[in-house]
Design a protein around this nucleic acid. Structure first.
Length: 471
RNA sequence: GCUCCCAUCGUCUAGCGGUUAGGACGCGGCCCUCUCAAGGCUGAAACAGGGGUUCAAUUCCCCUUGGGAGCACCA
């Protein structure tokens, strides 16, 4: 807690689903803060909800974190395994008179809330068992343990993002620490675990801001140190409403499948709510150097795929050709269905990379754009390409093929030959180049065609061209 | 209903009393050009509204409006 001690951060997802984009950003901020200050970043799985927690979700979260490159210190802490410790703290509070047993039934509480709602009053536990003598307790009846919270005054959350946020104590009620089945609630578990794990900084979603005030009361009752809080605004969908699946509330693995690069993802997520002047392209190393809590914005941001695409394209263009080719190969190997590129395909892919990478926003697009390099033989024409290859165009192609075959199979020579051919035929270069492209790639869009001709090689190129001429 | 948070181009944002309100994405135009991109130049595009405070408010305060979050024996 002291200024000179190393900070200890944590990301604490509940394994009830995949790691979504909001959680990923929260994790990223914690990770960046820890990296920036040379502190520790821990992972805690909040699996106390036995009904909804699944091993598959734990796995998805871990995989998501790994893909994003957010490495944590040590082994993940599983909250449920610490239930005994949580219970002990509740008992300790009970013994100290800072907590009490409440025997109110669920039906009773429902009734109470209904009445409060009808009266326009805040919906809070009314403390009906707070000051009752234990002798009044119904024998053998189930009970919960509630914190005997302060009733007057206020709690101020000193938040690094939100500023000082004040909560009047009469707005807070006596929260449940231990359920009637003896299991700890989230409120208890978080506070105890954060203390036991030595957490100094809590960076989490703003949906927890209200909880912070309650947790502070618990921390106060235990006499524990207060962590530094930073409640980050939530991410909204493009329409300003809550992020829905069709908007981007997907598991991070979906982003991987769509062909986004982990570093681009980190950059995008970072800029969603955090800024450093006019800087947009912020590689991770730079992000670690610059990250701070002060520059986190206070308003919720909307998720924008277009900007993510652009950023991803920038990272693709900035990547080394060999690394990028390897990324495409890996991407295809785990795609559905999986595909293995043979040596020839890999060599062509790498050779064509300079032309390929500046036309793709995702690895998926890159792979699709390189399809014509992956196998030999005539191409299946897409609609636009078929339209280009009219009988006339095929005649042009026949002449051009003959002209090309006579010369060197190097891009500059091929281009010169094609231009000469177009000139003598009274054609524009495009009228010769487009049929060439269609025959070679099966499409009307590709990297510079003369370079592709060279990469494909004379034999393969001629085979594809001849197939189109005779067809 | 109650509590809390938020508010600059369509979107992400810079701005921390005096600016021609800047950048990025997206959109339009031009250039480049074998296609598509990339790249260069360029254009349109914002301080939610109303009160204060101040010589001066996008900036500080209040209200309204509009968004969002939380009010469980979920986390």
């Amino acid at each position: 807690m002291t200024k000179d001690s190393t900070p200890v951060l944590r990301f604490a997802p509940s394994p009830t689903g995949y790691l979504h984009i909001g959680g990923a950003r929260t994790a990223l901020f914690n990770w960046l803060y820890a990296k920036h200050h040379g502190g520790k970043f821990l992972l805690r799985i909040e699996d106390t909800d036995r009904e909804r927690s699944t091993p598959a979700a734990v796995d998805a979260i871990l995989k998501g974190m790994e893909w994003l490159g957010l490495d944590w210190y040590g082994e993940p802490v599983f909250q449920f395994a610490r239930a005994d410790r949580h219970r002990a703290v509740a008992e300790q509070l009970l013994a100290a008179g800072k907590a009490y047993r409440c025997y109110a039934t669920a039906a009773e509480l429902d009734e109470m809330r209904a009445a409060q709602r009808a009266a326009g009053k805040p919906i809070h536990y009314d403390g009906r068992w707070r000051d009752r003598d234990p002798s009044e307790a119904p024998q053998g009846a189930p009970f919960v343990i509630r914190l005997k919270a302060q009733q007057s005054g206020e709690t101020i959350v000193h938040d690094q993002v939100q500023g000082d946020v004040r909560f009047a104590h009469d707005q807070l009620d006596d929260m449940i620490l231990l359920r009637s089945d003896g299991t700890p609630t989230y409120m208890l578990a978080v506070v105890v675990d954060d203390f036991d794990m030595g957490i100094t900084h809590v960076i989490r979603g703003a949906d927890h801001l209200n909880n912070a005030a309650r947790q502070l009361q618990l921390i106060d009752a235990m006499g524990w140190p207060v962590p530094v809080y930073a409640h980050v605004p939530l991410i909204h969908g493009p329409d300003g409403a809550k992020l829905s699946k069709r908007h981007g509330a997907l598991g991070v693995d979906e982003y991987r499948k769509m062909g986004y690069l982990a570093e681009a993802m980190r950059n995008y997520l970072l800029r969603l709510g955090w800024s450093h002047g006019d800087d947009e392209f912020i590689p991770t190393a730079q992000a670690i150097e610059w990250f701070n809590l002060d520059s986190i914005g206070k308003s919720p941001a909307r998720f924008d795929f277009k900007k993510l695409d652009n950023l991803n394209g920038q990272y693709i263009r900035a990547m080394d050709d060999a690394d990028l080719a390897a990324s495409v190969t890996d991407f295809l190997a785990v795609a559905e269905p999986p595909r293995q590129l043979d040596k020839k395909a890999q060599a062509r892919l790498k050779a064509a990379m300079p032309g390929l990478k500046e036309r793709a926003k995702t690895i998926l697009e890159l792979a699709e754009g390189a399809e014509f390099l992956f196998s030999d033989g005539p191409r299946t024409l897409d609609d636009a390409a078929a339209k280009i290859l009219t009988p006339d165009a095929r005649k042009v192609l026949a002449g051009l093929t003959a002209a090309l075959a006579a010369g060197n199979w190097l891009a500059p020579d091929l281009e010169t030959a094609t231009r000469a051919f177009a000139d003598e035929q009274g054609l524009k270069l495009g009228q010769a180049a487009q049929p060439l492209r269609a025959a070679l790639t099966g499409r009307t869009v590709s990297p510079p065609i003369f370079e592709m001709l060279q990469i494909l090689g004379k034999e393969e190129s001629l085979a594809r061209l001849n197939a189109c001429i005779t067809a």
